[in-house]
Structure formats: C-alpha cells, structure tokens
C-alpha cells in the first residue's frame, strides 16, 4: 500500500508527512507527527476530544482523513499558547478550575477558541450549544461555561 505525501500548515508551520490512504488526521497528528495534545475519546465524532481548527472551522480530526489535510491550515491545542504565554482561554480554564481530569480540556479549549474567533460575545446558551459536541464527564460543564464567559469578557476588555 503506497503512502500519500501530504503538505500542510500546522500552527503556522509548514509540515510534510506520509500517510496511508485510510489514516485519520487524528492518527497522523498523534502517531506520525507526535503531536499528542489532541486526544482520542471515541474515534467516531461523538466526544470532541480530537477537536482542531481547520481553515477557521472547528472539526473532529478523527473524522477526517490525513490526506485531506493537503494544502490546508490547521490549529491544534499545541498552537493555542504562544511565546508570550497562555491564551486567555487557557488562563481562565485554570482560574475557574474548569478541568478535573483534563482529558477533554484540549478539545474544549480549541472548540471555545473557534467560538470566540467568530462570536466574541456569546451568551450562555450559545456557549452551551456550541460546546455540545464536546463531552466532559467530570465537571458538569458549569465551570467550563463560566471560564469561556470570563475569557470572552477579558478579550473584549483587552480589545
């Protein structure tokens, strides 16, 4: 089975990799590229632990073929913080204790970033519906929603 050569941009960097035709993007990220921050909770698009932002859209990387990443631009959890430090969302998740075990956290932070990128001032209902594709079994979502609300306020204030 010959492998496919993929050129893509991950967190602002040009990346090249080879993948079998059936490999998911999640597997390529984790196994081939060693980017382990993106998590697998189900592999079937039901938990959101594998969330990434692809060309500005929130997607489940477990549902995408690695080969489809050709020529695309993506952001993973590893690209949310920068040299200046944590993203406001990350700070707010810590401040609000919005994680317990933390396995869902990368997915939630990526999903919340995608939300705030398009709607800087979402109300609680919007946040809850936007994040409905991400499962958290530990927190009951209360502190996650509050962290996102607080991050939105902080970003608005900084803007």
């Amino acid at each position: 089975m010959s492998k496919i050569h993929v050129q893509t941009t991950i967190n602002g960097e040009q990346v090249d990799f080879l993948c079998p035709p059936q490999q998911s993007l999640l597997e390529a990220l984790r196994e081939t590229l060693g980017m382990l921050g993106t998590k697998e909770g189900c592999g079937t698009g039901d938990c959101g632990a594998c969330s990434i932002i692809l060309n500005g859209r929130l997607v489940c990387s477990c549902l995408m073929l690695a080969a489809e990443a050709q020529g695309q631009e993506m952001t993973t959890i590893e690209g949310i913080a920068d040299a200046d430090g944590l993203h406001v969302l990350q700070e707010k998740f810590l401040e609000h204790a919005a994680l317990q075990c933390g396995i869902c956290t990368p997915g939630f932070i990526v999903a919340a970033k995608a939300l705030l990128d398009r709607d800087p001032n979402p109300d609680e209902r919007t946040i809850r519906y936007w994040l409905a594709g991400n499962l958290c079994r530990c927190t009951g979502y209360d502190k996650i929603v509050r962290a996102v609300q607080d991050a939105a306020q902080q970003l608005a204030y900084e803007a």
Binding site: E31, M35, L36, I80, L86, L94, E95, G102
Partner: peptide
Amino acid sequence: RPVRPDGVDKVTGRAQFGADQN
C-alpha cells in the same frame, strides 16, 4: 482556590495520558 500544579500542562496538551506513551 489556587491554580493546580499540573494545570498548565493540561491546558496546553503537554500532559501525558494513558495513550500518550510511545
């Protein structure tokens, strides 16, 4: 209510979970 010691690694994707050991 301070920030937990393992917090930064868990919000940045650095923390190693069960499937992250190769």
